[in-house]
Design a protein around this nucleic acid. Sequence first.
DNA 1: GATCCTAAGGAATAGGTTTTCCCGGCTACG
DNA 2: CGTAGCCGGGAAAACCTATTCCTTAGGATC
Lengths: 361, 361
Amino acid sequence: MPDSAGTRPATIRDVAAAAGVSIGTASKALNGQGRLRPETRRRVTEAADHLGFAPNVLAQGLLGGRTYTVGMITTDSFGRFSIPVMLGAEDALGAGQISVFMCDTRDDPDREQLYLDRLVSRRVDGLIVTGRRIEPRPALDVGRRFPVVYAMTQPLDGDDPAILPDDEGGAVTAVRHLLDLGRGHVGHITGPERFLAARKRAAGLSHVLTGAGVPFAADEVLYGEWSERWGRDAARILLAAAPATDAIFCGSDQIARGVADGLRALGCRVPDDVALVGFDNWAPMALGANPPLTTVDVRLEEIGRLAGQHLLAAIGGEPERGVHTVASQLVIRDSAPAPSGDQPDSAPAPSGDQPDPAPTS
Amino acid sequence: MPDSAGTRPATIRDVAAAAGVSIGTASKALNGQGRLRPETRRRVTEAADHLGFAPNVLAQGLLGGRTYTVGMITTDSFGRFSIPVMLGAEDALGAGQISVFMCDTRDDPDREQLYLDRLVSRRVDGLIVTGRRIEPRPALDVGRRFPVVYAMTQPLDGDDPAILPDDEGGAVTAVRHLLDLGRGHVGHITGPERFLAARKRAAGLSHVLTGAGVPFAADEVLYGEWSERWGRDAARILLAAAPATDAIFCGSDQIARGVADGLRALGCRVPDDVALVGFDNWAPMALGANPPLTTVDVRLEEIGRLAGQHLLAAIGGEPERGVHTVASQLVIRDSAPAPSGDQPDSAPAPSGDQPDPAPTS
DNA sequence: GATCCTAAGGAATAGGTTTTCCCGGCTACG
DNA sequence: CGTAGCCGGGAAAACCTATTCCTTAGGATC
């Protein structure tokens, strides 16, 4: 499709002129509307191809009242959590020919407002708000100019739809797996207690253990920070306090790595002496660990996809309000293998189970 | 700014009516153009505020021929490399009130073409192409409809501007640092030789060593893969072949982590017995490592910022062609500390030196 | 041969904004 | 008193497309 070589992109007027028809006729020919002779249609489409014509979406948007764009606002600096969510959302939206404006607020309310104004000016059809914390956040006030969907976060007020991971359910699955392995002394090392996600995961653990008749006190949970160092330190603390520990459920893969290293330093073998389950299925961490981590995948992409679908529904005028959760999935690797007798499980690892991502190269 | 409560966003026509002036006058008042009585201006802006008026950018773009949008296309799934680049670019572009369409091709040429068509239809003012490999890639053919800038990748043909990291220079700095520490037997463990980045970094190393009179043969470079496992394995291989090794320069932080673990397993202390320098300054890896890694930061955000600036220049009609490189920066941590007597260096760590990023919470 | 119908395509409008041109009225100057 | 000039603001074109309504010509029917 040779473009017109001129610096101005071809318009439908150019196409019409080239085909010797009126603008309206050209439009009909290109969109399959109206009653036209087949030969006329052919002439128009040929002219369009020849000129490299692509309809101006701005003009279409102006006319139709829909821009086929949505905004995506994040406070996560498009980091580890926002990105997969974003890709999932784009997946759902892309099918509707919708393009996405990305906005990183960098946790600055002023910036957020600025982006919001910009999106209003651009007449987006909708907005997805993502975060790295499931903690409720102040709702974005868009004065019902367009629908809003929250992903990986939820609005403090209002009943706009929110898609959340199932932290508690993920923890349940993880701890059940450890029990299935015959481990009876399960420890829990996780992030700061002020994080809702940490508390929910601890709740899931507690639920399963007490349900299985294993005594477990809330103060046995080792809350700390989301770092490897805390994992290393906590491993020592835990084994000193409870030497019989034969399994540890960790609040993140980073913590689990630290725990693995800490255990090795103590002469503990993973998984033989202590089985280990992480959380997040963050590929470079989970796969790089020694041994590779069994871990809970919260299926971020699926969360994003769902958010996209909900937004599309809302744009179409059929909003579904309230909170929706996406089931987590246990990915089994070496740090807590499948119970003997079981098949080694599919372990689909949605976020990519390739070796390790390539670097700066 | 109370919005009109109606579902339709306020237009300048509404503002004009509310202020009792014509549309043209309202426009002039809002944009500070033309000759108007101050009182008229005030009346119009008040009406606009009251109605929550925000000009329709689509209409503006249609008229002005500029949309104040650019596309950002990546093959990196907006991963570790694209994101910082993106943020930097957004930084530069945001100052110009420009919004960014994100497009993730997922390494699929069909998808890429689809996105390209979409961007053409949307009449973007320009395009930034990013990748995770500095390897030249086929140039995007946009038929001089808008300028294109490459970041972290370069076009195979054409002379569109490209912003690249200084892999060789980064390696030079890293190895000089090791020599400054008094280490005389430097090994190099890196990724696959087919990666241009790996070869460039090796070249930098070789350059410094031979310049310093240290014999170094090209076949001493341990090419492997970009994984921790390779680092662990290669540490063993290297120490077996060259037991005198007292420093290792690694092609990535992941490899460096593996090497650190491998060395510890061999009873080698880092940095006392062997000093270690990584590459990338990928926070969770470099900071989570034990000890935290001294590493080369290629300053991805700066690369993005420069790409944004070049794109702005090109949009403004002043394109600067050819390849530009951004100087790397050595970030000093414990795995290869500052030479005794030196100040512990500023170690600015652009990509965030906070503990560890928070998880799914 | 007159009327009606249909096929094919043209004209015009709408969408929101900016900008250029123009007009009316008032002041000031000759 | 006449006219030049300025101040304030209105009218309209332009950007590009999709759609609705109309027009024209030709063929078919009675």
